[in-house]
Design a protein around this nucleic acid. Sequence first.
DNA 1: CTAAATTGGTTGCCATTGCAACTATTAGCT
DNA 2: AGCTAATAGTTGCAATGGCAACCAATTTAG
Lengths: 153, 153
Amino acid sequence: MSSENNDSILKLERFLPYRLSILSNKVSSLVADIYKDKFAISITEWRIMAVLGEYPDISADEISAKTQIEKSILSRSVSKLLKRKLIERDMAEDDKRRSVIRLSTTGKSVYDEIVPLSYEYERALLKCFTKEEQAQFSALIDQLYEHASSLQI
Amino acid sequence: MSSENNDSILKLERFLPYRLSILSNKVSSLVADIYKDKFAISITEWRIMAVLGEYPDISADEISAKTQIEKSILSRSVSKLLKRKLIERDMAEDDKRRSVIRLSTTGKSVYDEIVPLSYEYERALLKCFTKEEQAQFSALIDQLYEHASSLQI
DNA sequence: CTAAATTGGTTGCCATTGCAACTATTAGCT
DNA sequence: AGCTAATAGTTGCAATGGCAACCAATTTAG
């Protein structure tokens, strides 16, 4: 008999943070491939375009708040998207620090192509759940996220 | 009335891949802080140590299979752990390509300290669920992961 | 009104990531 | 045996991430 009791070993493959990370990577890398292959766009860039599709004419800071993208990464991604003319930027009249960003015409057309693909992918993903399970899973994610946030210092 | 129908806008904050990514990042960054603050160890390094705690004397390739860590990243992490004497490595007798890796005495003692912390964190996380919800969530994760894997080419 | 603090955004720098090319060893074929 | 393919692991390199320092504009406090 081993001197170990069960608690002294960690079953990594059943450890929740690990499982979430693996699941998220799998799910995200599949979307990333779609965006990258068809539009040469990264997940980060897509997220920026996604919020701009929903909320036009917002500042970098507001994008950062909505997407959780760190501001230096955001700044560099915005530069790239500007160079590729997928977005446009002005400075706010009333506050010359604040930028005002929106999708360009090209950007909007790319956005309009990606949105249905994204929904289709999500639908395909959720096919493995019943409607009820979908609702459960969604609620549990929100619940856990809420709780995890409260654990932070 | 807008000319847009609802499908032409993507609500990023309700998009499953995005939500999973945000949740996973939150959960992982909390653990990462614990490991980093107390043991100056990264998540990647911890995962390597975790499988070695469970399966001593396995090869880098087997670690890679169990943790999903890409082999170049694994190689560099193993070098670091060797330098810090948290793990030990020999080459297999029967196959001089294959390494045989295990936790060192120091590594084992670090492992023995981290394991209960990890379980405690997981327990704290899951506090927001009833036993039933825990089981549901766990099952749904497995189900979705399985399904997502099948979507891959 | 002015000095200090705050805010929005950019940049420098270093660590991490991940693909691809490479070395060394072993396995498979004929 | 001898040649080719596959496998284990390392390394080069370019892209990405993220902290911290920084600049400029604005707000706040005295």
